[in-house]
Design a protein around this nucleic acid. Sequence first.
DNA 1: TGTAACTTAGCAACCGGTTGCTAAAGGGTT
DNA 2: AACCCTTTAGCAACCGGTTGCTAAGTTACA
Lengths: 340, 340
Amino acid sequence: MTERVTLSQIAKQCGANKSTVSRVLNNRCDASFSVQPQLRDKILRVARQMRYRPNLHAQTLARRQTRLIAVPRLVPSGDSEHVPGIYDAVTSHLVPYFREHGFEVCSTYYDPQHDKTLLPPWGVDGLVVMHRSPSHLIDELEEAAMPYVCVNCPTGPAGHSIQVDDTGGAELALGHLLALGHRRIAYRRFRTHLPPLHSSMIARHDSYLQFLSDHGLKPVKPHDGPWDEPELYLRKIIKAGATAVLAYDHVEAIRLLKASQKAAVRFPQDLSLVCFNDEFPCSMVMPSLTSVALPTAEMGKHAAQILIEQLNGQLTGESPLEYVLPETLVVRQSTVSCTM
Amino acid sequence: MTERVTLSQIAKQCGANKSTVSRVLNNRCDASFSVQPQLRDKILRVARQMRYRPNLHAQTLARRQTRLIAVPRLVPSGDSEHVPGIYDAVTSHLVPYFREHGFEVCSTYYDPQHDKTLLPPWGVDGLVVMHRSPSHLIDELEEAAMPYVCVNCPTGPAGHSIQVDDTGGAELALGHLLALGHRRIAYRRFRTHLPPLHSSMIARHDSYLQFLSDHGLKPVKPHDGPWDEPELYLRKIIKAGATAVLAYDHVEAIRLLKASQKAAVRFPQDLSLVCFNDEFPCSMVMPSLTSVALPTAEMGKHAAQILIEQLNGQLTGESPLEYVLPETLVVRQSTVSCTM
DNA sequence: TGTAACTTAGCAACCGGTTGCTAAAGGGTT
DNA sequence: AACCCTTTAGCAACCGGTTGCTAAGTTACA
């Protein structure tokens, strides 16, 4: 770390004591402290001249609070292509809100392979967790009494969380298809053989089954079990009479789009397509994708709000908050009336 | 900040002095210090039992170094859709490398609207800058003698940097088109009326002009000046006889793809398409995009390497390093032989 | 037995701020 | 002039570690 201007240096310059300088710069003019305008101005001037920037480590040590929020980010393992989820969207809404309230935000990097904690080695006042994390890591947060809020991922027993209503989103999407006359609706699951990485993998699939059952429809196979390559999957569901597909996310949807040529399926004429996650490039592909938008702005804002309240001690004693935010449907070109 | 176990508490538990505990936990057994195995083990055991985690702020203060690297990230302004560049790809390669060398990495958020510095308010040992930043911010880094390395963006007079060879990349792309028989090659500029946000906007365009000129070809208008909507742009270049397009980035390319229907152009039959940035979803759109891949892994690794060497004082006195890394061409479906 | 040399561990200052408490200076009143 | 109150500002301890130096205890050797 490069050497910086310190309080004492400023104090010496001004012929004052560093405690005075500290109080002036922090505007600590309570009943027990005051300065003459003359000295005050001099201190402020000198500090600006010397480009004084307080050492946050020292401040943290003395104040016992950092006003720093960590947002752990998953380090992508291996050389897999970076596929964007909603992390960035939510984070970008989180940051300004925290800043308005005097908190800084930093992303830390959590590598499931190596890291044994979500907590950064430097102190923070709180965390916003956006990835499903091993429960012992969440437990650790609670043991350490570290304020945190989970966004779109499972929380611990005492943790507040922001969830999205995937069931409602699925209903919007499926209702839309139903209204367009579709009766044979398939579900395209997430691209992995691994056990569910995220609760949405279960929620979206379950909601699919529930909705169909509620409306007297039968699921189109395959909707679970082993993962088929896109082309094979399309052939299977077409054979099974599907006229529409609900995809786990935009990436799956885009892969289906791509496989359509080989599988001799035309979107949307032969098959309508809806997906979760209205993120790039949903609006830019051809046909543009009808998709369920997660309320990323709201998620970010509420998460920040809850965490700030926690930090201000306004949420003690209450039972954990769980906000469930609605999703919305953005209709585009990939869904059309059923012609079958 | 929640209260944590401190050195002194451990020391008291062990009936030892905190300095001894500190040295044991940090394995400081130089010539001037040693402990009996018995005490050593006890300290280690108690520390583990009490789940001791050193306070990094205190350590930083005492050691005068943080072993923390900041990677500023642009806060997207307004509600614009998050469009991924290569930031994430590079960062994900940066992190493991730094960690292997004992450094932690955090992303900080830089908001051009409000922030007057790239430096986070807490101390860091160095920065990896990946966004074109106002030059006075870079100057500030140099004045503060803060080690930094710029990746794919302009650096200050004394700053090391990692650049990519956009000219080479353009030559690969254009050479590929040339080999396929294309002679009327258009260039699709970045989607903004603003002055160049990034040097690549100039470099790629210039390289385009240079290559054509070198090979006795004429640019297809419009390749600069006001930005046209994708559809209008396509109509214009088709009218001008274009058989291929080089796009500034994958987002532009995808937008062109989308506009093709309205503009009555077929990719790749009527128009071949190459773009810079081989990122999601280049391989997943239809037709998949022939694209120039930036060496994100290499960029991350070299950036980390240079910064670590700087931090170790191995790079003093030398003139600034500038690594220029080659780009590679990934040929996919969007480019075919010219049939005109 | 005295002493040099080595091992083991503690003292205390320091990193750069913050803050409770106290002291000095200034002003007003009796 | 003595006294009290208020304003102004400094002293010093503290936050939780790190580290140079020193002290106590052991062993080795003359």
